[in-house]
Structures are given as structure tokens and as C-alpha cells.
């Protein structure tokens, strides 16, 4: 950041001479500032989207993926034996941290929301549930399934992350899309500045001719345009970033009910990310105008 400011300082220096040699052009100024603001606003949202889906993918992937359930459906007589066999298989399976058969009370509690209290669970063919916690490496679920089939044919391995996996993938994809959007916005900004600078350079062919006649170098002429566009884009992007941040601030904070949508706000140090948007825009404008100026000045030679 400090190096960046050092790089910017010659651009921001008040050097009336160099800036005044290019005639002011009110309308395109406002268009450039507006576009830069809009692009910065969009970038802040893309950032929020990307960071939020990144967080989501992480949480879902992390805490939830570590537990699975084994469900044993067997005739009442074999239930205890199969549960015993399944637990034994589990203790021998690498990657299983712990496995525990749910007690009748716990199963009752799970079913209560659906069937109401006082369910005579003992007399119903309710499957026995085994809660399995994984180590961080995880177990080989196909291998486990095969062994369960042999030892406890009534056991069904139910991995929660089977349904969660596509969601984690989607969140990861969303995060990627956010970054791709930021790249596209950056490229669009570069294209926009190039177009504006090209038009401005072409419109000022006589100015360039006069400057050359009195001994101005290409670098001097280019910097007059470059500085102007860099400052405009920096200004616009700063306004757009602040507006984007305000819009995100106005979104409700994350809570359990809202899930993803309310999690769109930045969290912690992520709030600092948008601070990079205006400098990034300025760098893009600088490079784009520099390129356009070099090209046009070469053609006008």
C-alpha cells in the first residue's frame, strides 16, 4: 500500500502546467467518473459474494462433513446383534474417530417433532441409528459400506455430505464466479478507459501537434492524459466503493434463519478488501491510458 502511494504521488501532484495543456472536456469526464463508480460498486458486490460463498463453502465443508449416520433396519430379533456388529466394524475402520449407538431416548427425541410425544418407540419398527464422527482424514465410505454389508446386512451408511457435497461445490463455484466477475469488471474498466482515452487523444490532435512543435516529449504529452484519467477513475472508484460498502452495510447481518443471503456482509478483516478497489481501478486506468497514449502518439508521429 505504501509503495502504491509512492507510485501514485507523481500522478496526484498538483502540476497545473501539465494538466492544463489538455483542454477540459466536461461530458466525457463525467462519463468516465460515472463508469468508474459503477464498476467499483459492482466490484464490491462481487467481492462480497465471493468472500461470503468462500466462507460458506468452508463452514459447510468443515464442521458438517465430519459426521455421518448409520441406520440399521433389521427384524427386532437381530437388531441388537447387527448394531453390535456394525459398531465393531466401525472401531476397526481407519478414519472413524468415534461411533455411538443412539439411545432409545435420543431416537425418541428425534422423532418427536414428527409424531408427537408419547410415541411407543419400542413397539415400532424404528431403525437403530449410529452416530459416526470422522477424523479429519475421513474414512473410505465405499470400503466401509462393503464391510457393513458383510457383517450387518441391515446397515445403511448415510453420509450427510452426500446431499451437502453439491452445495459445497456450488458455493465454491460461486466464489470462483465472483472472482471471474471481478476480473471481467477490471477488463471492462480497462477497455472503457482505453476507448475514452483514444477518443480524447484523437480529438486533441492539434494540441499534440502544438506540444510537439514546442518540444514536448511523448512522455510529457502522455502523462498529461494519463494523470487526468487516473485521477478521474480513482475519484469515481472511490465514490462507487463507498456506495457499495453502504449498500452492503444496509443488508442485515448473518443470522441462522437467513443463511446465505444474510451472510453477504463482509466479516472481520474482509471489510478491508474493498479498500483495494479504488487503487486497483487507478492502476488499471493508468496502464490503459498509458497504452493508448503510446499507441496514438506513435501513429501521429
Amino acid at each position: 500500500m505504501k509503495r502504491f502511494l509512492e507510485f501514485l504521488s507523481p500522478l496526484l501532484r498538483v502540476d497545473a502546467g501539465a494538466d492544463r495543456v489538455v483542454p477540459p472536456s466536461g461530458f466525457t469526464v463525467r462519463l468516465t467518473v460515472f463508469t468508474a463508480a459503477a464498476m467499483a460498486f459492482l466490484t464490491v458486490f462481487a467481492l462480497a459474494l465471493s468472500l461470503a460463498s468462500g466462507r460458506l463453502a468452508q463452514t459447510w465443508g468443515d464442521d458438517l462433513a465430519r459426521s455421518s449416520t448409520i441406520r440399521i433396519s433389521a427384524p427386532a430379533g437381530q437388531m441388537a446383534a447387527q448394531t453390535e456388529a456394525a459398531l465393531k466394524v466401525l472401531t476397526q475402520t481407519p478414519g472413524v474417530e468415534s461411533a455411538r449407538a443412539l439411545t432409545t431416548e435420543e431416537q425418541k427425541a428425534l422423532l418427536e417433532p414428527w409424531f408427537g410425544p408419547g410415541l411407543p418407540i419400542e413397539s415400532l419398527p424404528v431403525p437403530q441409528l449410529i452416530d459416526v464422527a470422522e477424523t479429519s482424514e475421513g474414512f473410505d465410505s465405499d470400503g466401509l459400506r462393503l464391510r457393513l454389508q458383510a457383517e450387518a446386512p441391515g446397515a445403511v451408511l448415510d453420509e450427510h455430505n452426500r446431499w451437502r457435497r453439491p452445495l459445497v461445490a456450488a458455493a465454491g463455484r460461486l466464489k470462483l464466479l465472483g472472482w471471474v466477475s471481478i476480473l471481467l469488471i477490471t477488463a471492462t474498466t480497462a477497455a472503457m478507459v482505453t476507448l475514452a482515452a483514444n477518443a480524447s487523444l484523437a480529438a486533441n490532435a492539434q494540441v499534440i501537434e502544438v506540444l510537439r512543435l514546442v518540444g514536448a516529449t511523448d512522455g510529457y504529452i502522455a502523462s498529461a492524459f494519463v494523470r487526468r484519467y487516473t485521477v478521474r477513475v480513482l475519484t469515481g472508484a472511490a465514490v462507487g466503493t463507498v456506495a457499495g460498502l453502504l449498500a452492503i452495510l444496509l443488508m442485515p447481518g448473518s443470522n441462522d434463519a437467513g443463511g446465505f443471503l444474510t451472510g453477504l456482509r463482509f466479516e472481520g478483516w474482509h471489510w478491508f478488501w474493498p479498500a483495494f478497489v479504488p487503487p486497483l481501478a487507478a492502476v488499471v486506468a493508468f496502464a490503459a491510458t498509458q497504452g493508448a497514449a503510446r499507441r496514438v502518439l506513435g501513429e501521429l508521429a
Binding site: 502546467g17 506540444l211 510537439r212 514536448a216
Partner: peptide, 30 residues
């Protein structure tokens, strides 16, 4: 060009700058 003072036949200036700044332009750009 800074060592060669040129008077063009069709005298061109920066039309948005006042005359004194135009005359001082060679100093400004150098």
C-alpha cells in the same frame, strides 16, 4: 526542438489557454 524556435506559417496554439501561457508553453513542457 527546444533549441530551435519555429514560427509556423499557420500559427497554431492551445486555444483553451490564454496567450501568455501559450507563449510560455515551451518553458512549461521543458
Amino acid at each position: 526542438r527546444r533549441r530551435i524556435g519555429v514560427v509556423h506559417q499557420d500559427c497554431k496554439f492551445l486555444d483553451h489557454l490564454p496567450l501568455d501561457e501559450n507563449i510560455a508553453l515551451p518553458l512549461t513542457v521543458s
